[in-house]
Computed example of a mutant assay.
Amino acid sequence: MIECELPRENPNDPEIAEILKNAQTIAVVGISHKEHRDSHKVAKYLKEQGYTIIPVNPKYKEVLGEPCYPDLASVPHKIDIVDIFRNIEAIPGIVDEAIRVGAGCVWMQLGLAHNESAEKARAAGLKVVMSKCTKVEHHRLLGAGAKE
């Protein structure tokens, strides 16, 4: 079993704000259709802020009115941020897939950090944020409605 680590490196607040300002599409990997789950709440918030949400979960056909894809390779759009809501063991494979599809950023949700995968993503030219919530950071740095 892989243990969750503390991030060795993370972007600073202005860099995180820039990632969020420049993003248009966010693939939410591990999204749930259950409204009480964090992945659903975060995706709903981001969609309300004007982002195009791309649900990624092989269990569903649609989430939040958007088509749901089984994996990143199946997504027919450019992905700016891959927002990961999966267990730590799944992160290396998701990061490899994010690199293959040419995503701009890998974002590991609050409580998730995998330094080896982060280094691999950075070496491939992706930005990486670990153990932070996209909803919390967006609201804190840009405020609700900032993406409009």
Score class of each variant (00 low, 15 high):
residue 67 P to V: 03
residue 24 Q to K: 15
residue 21 K to H: 03
residue 97 E to Y: 02
residue 141 L to P: 12
residue 56 V to M: 02
residue 135 K to L: 15
residue 128 V to I: 12
residue 6 L to W: 05
residue 18 E to D: 15
residue 40 H to K: 11
residue 32 S to Q: 03
residue 47 K to F: 03
residue 125 G to E: 11
residue 2 I to S: 11
residue 59 K to A: 14
residue 37 R to V: 11
residue 1 M to D: 12
residue 87 N to M: 10
residue 120 K to M: 07
residue 60 Y to W: 11
residue 31 I to Q: 05
residue 48 E to S: 05
residue 69 Y to V: 03
residue 35 E to H: 10
residue 144 A to I: 13
residue 30 G to N: 01
residue 47 K to V: 00
residue 25 T to E: 11
residue 52 T to E: 12
residue 102 G to L: 09
residue 70 P to C: 02
residue 66 E to D: 06
residue 37 R to Q: 14
residue 75 V to F: 01
residue 139 H to C: 09
residue 131 S to M: 10
residue 15 E to L: 14
residue 72 L to Y: 00
residue 41 K to E: 13
residue 134 T to Y: 02
residue 80 D to A: 13
residue 20 L to W: 04
residue 21 K to A: 04
residue 53 I to A: 01
residue 54 I to E: 09
residue 19 I to F: 05
residue 66 E to N: 00
residue 82 V to I: 09
residue 134 T to C: 09
residue 120 K to S: 02
residue 65 G to R: 09
residue 74 S to V: 06
residue 90 A to V: 01
residue 8 R to L: 15
residue 29 V to G: 00
residue 92 P to A: 06
residue 98 A to V: 00
residue 106 V to G: 06
residue 69 Y to L: 02
residue 6 L to G: 12
residue 92 P to Y: 04
residue 121 A to P: 10
residue 65 G to S: 09
residue 5 E to Y: 07
residue 97 E to S: 15
residue 12 N to D: 15
residue 30 G to I: 01
residue 36 H to M: 13
residue 49 Q to Y: 04
residue 56 V to R: 00
residue 13 D to E: 08
residue 73 A to K: 10
residue 124 A to G: 06
residue 82 V to K: 01
residue 96 D to V: 01
residue 132 K to A: 15
residue 98 A to L: 02
residue 128 V to D: 14
residue 30 G to K: 00
residue 35 E to T: 13
residue 114 H to R: 02
residue 12 N to I: 12
residue 35 E to V: 12
residue 60 Y to R: 05
residue 125 G to M: 06
residue 101 V to H: 05
residue 58 P to C: 03
residue 2 I to A: 10
residue 8 R to G: 07
residue 12 N to V: 13
residue 54 I to A: 09
residue 11 P to D: 01
residue 35 E to L: 10
residue 69 Y to W: 11
residue 18 E to S: 15
residue 13 D to A: 13
residue 136 V to G: 11
residue 72 L to C: 04
residue 45 Y to W: 05
residue 138 H to F: 12
residue 44 K to Q: 10
residue 50 G to N: 04
residue 49 Q to A: 05
residue 65 G to W: 10
residue 142 L to C: 08
residue 144 A to G: 08
residue 126 L to I: 14
residue 72 L to S: 02
residue 58 P to L: 08
residue 8 R to W: 09
residue 120 K to C: 06
residue 54 I to Y: 07
residue 52 T to W: 08
residue 104 G to D: 04
residue 4 C to K: 10
residue 138 H to C: 05
residue 93 G to T: 09
residue 66 E to M: 00
residue 77 H to M: 13
residue 60 Y to T: 06
residue 76 P to S: 07
residue 17 A to R: 15
residue 104 G to S: 05
residue 133 C to K: 07
residue 73 A to L: 11
residue 41 K to P: 10
residue 86 R to L: 02
residue 121 A to R: 09
residue 144 A to S: 14
residue 112 L to V: 04
residue 61 K to R: 10
residue 72 L to G: 01
residue 120 K to W: 04
residue 10 N to W: 12
residue 101 V to W: 01
residue 116 E to F: 05
residue 118 A to K: 05
residue 1 M to E: 12
residue 139 H to D: 15
residue 43 A to R: 03
residue 38 D to I: 11
residue 60 Y to C: 06
residue 11 P to W: 04
residue 108 M to R: 09
residue 29 V to M: 01
residue 119 E to G: 11
residue 99 I to L: 10
residue 37 R to F: 03
residue 11 P to F: 08
residue 124 A to M: 05
residue 67 P to W: 06
residue 43 A to I: 04
residue 66 E to S: 02
